[in-house]
Simulated scan of single mutants.
Amino acid sequence: MTVSPGNLADRPPAAQPDDLLSDLLRSVRLTGERVVTLQQPSTFAVGFADVGSLHIIEEGELELRIDGDPDVKHIGRGDVVLLPRGDRHQLSSARGPASEQVRWLCGRFTIGDPQASHLLRSLPAAIVLGATGTPVPEGLEVARRMLLIEMQTPSQGSAVMIARILDLIFVQILRTWAAGKDPEPNWLAGAFDAEIGLSLSAIHRAPGRDWTVDDLAQVCNLSRSTFAARFAERVGKPPATYLAHVRLDTAADLLRNTSLSVNHVAARVGYTSEAAFSRAFKSRYSTPPARWRRDATTPGPAPGRATAEV
């Protein structure tokens, strides 16, 4: 008797219909670039700037300083640190501990879509697993060992393997942080809320729809007042504000990547008046849409960024 292969093993689970994190990370087009091992003597300071960074501490103790943040974070062996926004920061030898060598893995990420980087800019400057009491998930330890194998015994395809492992680590850290206790309000914390995540997915799937708070509350099967309060608590802004930001960011993508007229772009993202759309777009991007499109499609400096974060 011939048995279908589908009967020999469990079928893979179907993708979740409301996997907002995957949808948004695809729009960002995140790419792990490379990873190196940094080994320093007992006294040192190393600066990093303008690139998403990952640090996995292998040995020793360090101090992490982030530009604009007066607090110094103390990290050590086994800790994992992600700086998703690319904030300027410095790692230096810790004051006080006995002289010891420090070694850590350092990876970096690039964002293929500069305008989608607002999704990452709304995250914390640094996510630290291990030192803050948030345990490092087992999957990250497996990924770390895989990185070391590819770095120590490189072979054909190692560059791609390293890039994919870095992508995996990035997503795992975000998932762990968002599922932890009391994450900072933003879209990622909202995505991990069983009800609010449904409304975020609905908004991102159809930003041009004439959504009302009542409509979104019904998507979540919540009362209007409960939904509005929980949305603001999880996401950090009211539903209408979040919807407006998503619409304008979608419009920016359409302006850059399609030949649709400004009027058609406005209609696609839910505006009935081109004038109202232009005012809202200029308020968010500091440039009228037609000029923003010219700047975005002409070689040279990048056009204006969003002035308010999703």
Rank of each mutant, 00 (worst) to 15 (best):
I57W: 04
E58R: 15
E59L: 14
E59V: 07
E59S: 11
E59W: 03
G60R: 13
G60H: 05
G60L: 07
E61K: 12
E61Q: 15
L62S: 12
L62G: 02
I66W: 07
D67P: 00
D67H: 11
G68D: 04
G68A: 15
G68K: 07
D69I: 15
D69A: 09
P70V: 09
P70D: 13
D71A: 14
D71W: 00
V72Q: 03
V72M: 04
K73T: 07
H74I: 08
H74Q: 11
H74P: 00
I75H: 02
I75V: 15
G76S: 15
G76A: 13
R77H: 08
R77F: 04
V80M: 06
V80P: 08
V81F: 01
L82G: 00
L83S: 10
L83C: 07
P84H: 01
R85W: 00
R85C: 09
R85T: 14
G86S: 08
G86A: 10
G86K: 05
G86D: 12
D87T: 10
D87I: 06
R88C: 00
H89L: 08
Q90D: 09
L91E: 06
L91Q: 04
L91D: 10
S92A: 15
S93M: 05
R95D: 07
G96S: 10
G96V: 06
G96H: 09
G96L: 04
G96Q: 05
P97Q: 04
P97D: 06
P97F: 02
S99E: 15
E100D: 11
V102Q: 06
V102P: 01
R103I: 10
R103D: 03
W104C: 02
W104R: 13
L105R: 14
C106H: 14
G107F: 00
G107Q: 01
R108D: 12
F109W: 13
G112H: 14
G112I: 12
D113I: 15
P114L: 09
Q115C: 03
Q115P: 01
Q115T: 12
A116M: 14
A116V: 07
S117P: 02
H118F: 03
H118R: 04
H118N: 02
L119Q: 01
L119N: 02
L120M: 15
R121C: 05
R121M: 08
S122A: 15
S122M: 14
L123C: 07
L123T: 03
P124Y: 02
P124H: 01
